[in-house]
Design a protein around this nucleic acid. Sequence first.
DNA 1: AGCGTGTACCGTACGGTGTACGCCAACGGA
DNA 2: TCCGTTGGCGTACACCGTACGGTACACGCT
Lengths: 246, 246
Amino acid sequence: MSAKSDPGRSLALLWGSHTRPGRSGLTVRAIVDAAIELADTEGLDAATMRRVADKIGSGTMSLYTHVPGKTELNDLMVDTVIGELYTGVDDPAGHGGWREGLRYVAERNWDVSLRHPWLLDATGGRPTLGPNAVLKYEAELRVLDGIGLTDLQMDSVLTLVLTHVEGVARSHAGLARAQRDSGLTEQEWWRATAPVLERVMTGHDFPVAGRVGEASSQVYQASADPVHAFAFGLDVILDGVQRLID
Amino acid sequence: MSAKSDPGRSLALLWGSHTRPGRSGLTVRAIVDAAIELADTEGLDAATMRRVADKIGSGTMSLYTHVPGKTELNDLMVDTVIGELYTGVDDPAGHGGWREGLRYVAERNWDVSLRHPWLLDATGGRPTLGPNAVLKYEAELRVLDGIGLTDLQMDSVLTLVLTHVEGVARSHAGLARAQRDSGLTEQEWWRATAPVLERVMTGHDFPVAGRVGEASSQVYQASADPVHAFAFGLDVILDGVQRLID
DNA sequence: AGCGTGTACCGTACGGTGTACGCCAACGGA
DNA sequence: TCCGTTGGCGTACACCGTACGGTACACGCT
């Protein structure tokens, strides 16, 4: 019987208080905070066990006394930053109607994705279901409660909005990372790419793509504009939800 | 001057014919195909240079004669499977109105994401802009041409639909990967998780989340249902686009 | 035919990853 | 005081991408 991917172990760790220090002051909290700080400034890849240990001045393997493995550390990181979403700010359900509420939910999620871009890399697969994740689910669902949707529709609408935010945030994070890695801003990269692309495309015929791509890149000065995509898509989705409610 | 992330080099490779074999029959085509097959069956992580080389019976470093590096190999893999999208099937623009056309586009993208789940892991950052990517862009934009949208709106609507498909496909792929890695089906995992979650949540109060979560998980027998999210979200988005056109 | 050279091919090595394993020291209870 | 338990950690292993340098083949020129 392998202890691999035992849901219980991970859940117990997530819902535990994990504040008891070891005899050299090592804490789960400190480990998670160090990992988050590394991921914030240098990306999720930088949050390796060795570098986390170095950052808090302990040996690498000491971390395994407090955290079963890398996977569980990631889960803890995720639930921790999810906790930032609605603590110390307004309750989403108190933002006027469902439309303003949903927009607020989208904006809060967008903000946290900007502060912690690695969140998107760490969340694939089954959901984490830590205390803050459940709290988030509760706060966001309340926006849609009592406006004439079934329970299933409430869940579906929320999923739709969150999927959209996650998608455009991922796009944004991808471009930011590309910019950091390559040293080229979006404008510079596009100015370098466009001519090559044009030269290589001669001979083929892409009438609509040429026209629309030209127009878009003129406005964006890039290949895409996640900020615009966020706002545009959110408006369209909210209009669609409006029709669903009617 | 570093050759790192030179857009021109990658583009030239993408748009080249890359069919000329070396003296032991090694081809770019063969390398890319082997990598795709590995990624299809065992995930993107399995498509390492060593394993690709083993698969085609060459030394690891021989690959670097034909492909500058792992990054460019990924780009080639991506553009190759994008080529599967609309070859040998109907033109999206010939599928009745824009609504049916967009739905067709969404379904084709969904299908290819099911066949090649690693595609989502390989596409972050700046777009690839290989020949098949441009071809795809052209085919999909034609669906929205001449229905009263501006060029920018056409691009935005297409981006919205593709972002949605990518999001739910990523969710689907994540669940499938989790299922494969853990050996637990979604039902089994949920049956194992739900009781623990319930026990750990006693003492806290999540009225709406409890009710809605209960209803959803009853229907899905899981924590989420990407197939349902795909259909539901697409309908809502199309309704929103309808309002935009009016 | 003989030779010179460019290059396809590949073996080795380096610095990185997550973590299994085993040793040591400090602490708590009897 | 002694001893079992447990926190801390050093070493080692199997992987990764790829820089580097060596070998041997194919081809152009005399």
